[in-house]
Design a protein around this nucleic acid. Sequence first.
DNA 1: GACGATACGGAACGCGCGCCCCGGTTGGCA
DNA 2: TGCCAACCGGGGCGCGCGTTCCGTATCGTC
Lengths: 171, 171
Amino acid sequence: MRADAARNREKVLEAARELFAAQGFDVPLDEIAARAGVGPGTVYRHFPTKQALFQAVTEARVAAMIESAALPAEDPRAALFAFLGRMAEEASAKRDMSDAITVTPELRKSLHATLGGLLHKAQEAGEVRTDVTATDLVILMKGMLQSLHEGGNPDVLLQIVLTGLQSSRKP
Amino acid sequence: MRADAARNREKVLEAARELFAAQGFDVPLDEIAARAGVGPGTVYRHFPTKQALFQAVTEARVAAMIESAALPAEDPRAALFAFLGRMAEEASAKRDMSDAITVTPELRKSLHATLGGLLHKAQEAGEVRTDVTATDLVILMKGMLQSLHEGGNPDVLLQIVLTGLQSSRKP
DNA sequence: GACGATACGGAACGCGCGCCCCGGTTGGCA
DNA sequence: TGCCAACCGGGGCGCGCGTTCCGTATCGTC
């Protein structure tokens, strides 16, 4: 690959990172190109489609999140809740996290699998209500993450969901 | 107004009711016109804009929901939860309920006011966590209502939110 | 320094959709 | 029954956006 090609590819990725994070998947591709200081055609030389560019930007962050979930094997409930908290944190800072679940089937599947594992362990330990499925959880989180961009208080919303997930053991 | 004009207006409303309910606000207006058996121009003779048609379809249902919230003055927590349940029920049957919050500022304000009243009473009674605002609740509900259309189990999702809303009184 | 391959920019295309306009038609009053 | 106003249908416009195409510029090699 030619030197300037590599440079432009990096400029495009940089611009895409910023704009996807600020405005989500819906940002026009021409805007990304303009910010990168290149033409739209150049973007398409490096990425076959807008979705591919989006995936290139988001999949690393999602992968990092998922990896971080595998580390601590202590309390299953804490592990699940920490992961959900991490998701909320990421999503309230960058608008593309919630879109990633919708736009890219691969990322959605990865998240589904990870959440499913954490959820199952927490349920086996009797810490989380057993009528929730991994699919429910992904969907609920997607809704909540989107809510974060509309002015909802992140801490409160997350707390509501986390509290609601816990098993209702009658005192 | 001429007789056939009134008839067409009703046919448009009927088609709009069905299609907005099935597909949400994003359904093309031409599709509504086709289903009503009229041309797009006819739709615009009766409603100045697509949004106006949407509002004409949804505002009656929202108003009915809001009225039903004023009736029972018993347990404040039950009143709030019943209303949220009603919202969830309506939204899982008709896809336009969640869009109504987004698209029509008036309806959003009505809902905000109603939810605010119910929430405040329930909070005063110590039944609901006090760090939640009416805005948070509207936003959270909107996210949850949208989640209902993506395969989430309505009962479970609603239960999670309702449980999470309750005051955490340590047993 | 020249030449071929590679990459660039941006104009242009196709498409979908909200919205408008106009020639033809229909309803209801005199 | 005839006439005018109201109304209808649908073709068309404007716009935004993803994507493609091509003439031109640039890189790297001989």
